[in-house]
Simulated scan of single mutants.
Amino acid sequence: MRYQFLLDPSITFLNHGSFGACPKPIFEEFQRYQLELESEPVDFIQRKQTSYLRTARQSLAKFVGCNAGDLFFTSNPTFAINIIMRSIKLNEGDEILATNHEYGAMDRTWNFYCKKTGAKYIRQNISLPIISKEQIIEEFWKGYTKNTKIVFLNHMSSATALIFPVKEICDKAQELGLITIVDGAHVPGHIDLNISELNPDYYTGTLHKWMLAPKGSSFLYVKPEFQNDLEPLVVSWGYESVAPGESQFLDYHELQGTRDVSAFLCTPKVIEFLEVNNWKKVSDSCKQIVLANYQRFCDLLKAQPLSPLTTEFLGQMASVPINTTNPTELKSLLYDKYKIQVPVMPLNGNFYIRYSVNAYNSQEDLDKLYQALEEIIKTTDLIST
């Protein structure tokens, strides 16, 4: 499988979780659309693009379990969340209940809007290690007050690489009359996803991570009753359109003027690639490698696993606590000397080394990381054990 990807063969790439990796057939489809755009830009943008986007949306909606008219493409989840935040009317004292495991860009975006409105962003502590799903749910709802207006939750955390019980939390939030927003950046193509069953008000996810699409391909799902309240982040030709399309919702958010939508249009090819290569089986094999190596790295780094070693909490990536004096220098050393691309992630005053496993990886790749860390422990003071 590794020869299907464009990754530099001299690098041991254990960081699929950050930006993904695109296989050759999908990248060729990406370039094909770009060439079509450049060969006749006016015809492509003014006549073909809407139809192409509709086909791509229909393909994606079937894959993620929702109606094609209830989502649109965005460049990334941060863009998607900014659309929501701009539209939701926050008042002074309103509270957004999240966890202290959210992605840093999301924390910053909520803080930005809260400063403007006087609302409060509550990063509810979810203690580590995770003992059970019930523990997460119980600790999360301790942050609920009469002022809570929104529940914001990552489906799978970035720094700690943990799967969160989104369905249970969404169900209770609906009972309480709260708005539910889910950041599923790491979910599509990684763990099972059926948006209709989860029933959030808003859900965003990427295609360019675990679905293997070209960079800059993500989506935002919005429940129908909220769609007409969603303002465009960029006001363009879709606003008060002289030639309305399927819905105001799609007009506002799809018609953004001149931009390259080639990454979005690759979606049918992306899904075809996953199906032809039996990606569910590939993904399950990768998850088993992640689980088989986790305790081994914990033992090396004298760390405790962040959760039970099961697929209820872990997917194709895992984060191991690491006691380092300089995470930036450690990451650079692993790359510059050992040719290993792996992140050292900060969160809440702690650091985690997070390895990802995909089809192009093997046990040998994790052995290289293990041996490099072993040598660094013996020869430097960057890691304490």
Rank of each mutant, 00 (worst) to 15 (best):
E168Q: 15
H186L: 08
K339Q: 14
G238V: 10
I84V: 09
S196Q: 08
T310V: 04
F351Y: 13
A263E: 10
K281G: 04
Y294V: 01
K302S: 14
V222M: 02
G65Q: 05
V166M: 03
N100F: 09
A173V: 12
D381V: 13
L71N: 00
L347G: 06
C66N: 04
F72T: 00
I289H: 10
S283M: 13
Q248I: 15
V242F: 14
L334I: 11
L212D: 02
H16W: 12
P9N: 10
P308T: 15
F63C: 05
Y360K: 11
K269I: 11
R2P: 00
Q31W: 05
L35D: 11
F73A: 04
F140P: 04
Q341W: 07
N199M: 02
N361D: 03
G20T: 03
G245R: 12
L382M: 03
N82A: 12
V320Y: 07
L333T: 06
F44L: 05
K115P: 05
W279D: 05
K116S: 11
E28D: 15
D107N: 07
I131G: 12
P129V: 15
S283T: 15
F226W: 12
P327E: 09
Q46I: 11
G189H: 11
K116W: 11
T55M: 07
R108T: 05
D183V: 14
E231N: 14
E95Y: 14
S362K: 09
Q58A: 03
H253V: 00
Y103H: 10
Y360W: 11
N358G: 11
L306F: 04
Q256E: 03
E38V: 01
T380W: 03
K133G: 00
F79T: 11
S87P: 01
N82C: 04
Y3M: 13
G143I: 10
G245Q: 07
Y335M: 09
Q49S: 13
Q256K: 13
A56V: 08
N228V: 00
I136T: 15
S75T: 13
M1D: 07
L14Q: 05
Y144R: 05
I150D: 02
L333E: 08
